[in-house]
Design a binder for these strands. Structure first.
Length: 93
DNA sequence: GTTATGACCCAAA
DNA sequence: GTTTGGGCCATAA
């Protein structure tokens, strides 16, 4: 899984993952898969964000808090709206 | 087989 | 950089 290759301290967008996965037009499926992943999975799903660098879930806040804390532990900075600076933390292959 | 839904993306304003 | 509208594909019922 591509998500498992995301380096620590960086975030990847669904578009990148979808592209690397071979489904550039089907990023939603990536999200669905991530949601289906178990809580203690070996996949850093919390490093996956949408194109705006914003945490996905479309409004939910449960996983969001965990994700934010996890990213903060990775030295990733969040702005006041719960978004990360893609220009600085975007996963550059 | 068709209908409905979804952790989204891209182009334009 | 952000917001709005349109669109693609896959999984589930």
């Amino acid at each position: 899984m591509i998500v498992r290759q995301i380096p620590r301290g960086s975030v990847a967008t669904y578009g990148q993952i979808a592209k690397l996965a071979g489904i550039p037009r089907n990023s939603r499926q990536v999200g669905s898969v991530l949601k289906n992943l178990p809580a203690g999975s070996s996949v850093p799903w919390f490093r996956v964000v949408n194109s705006r660098g914003e945490i996905s879930l479309r409004g939910d806040g449960s996983c969001q808090s965990v994700q934010r804390i996890k990213l903060e532990k990775e030295k990733i900075e969040f702005d006041g709206r719960g978004r990360v600076s893609l220009s600085r933390f975007a996963w550059k292959v």
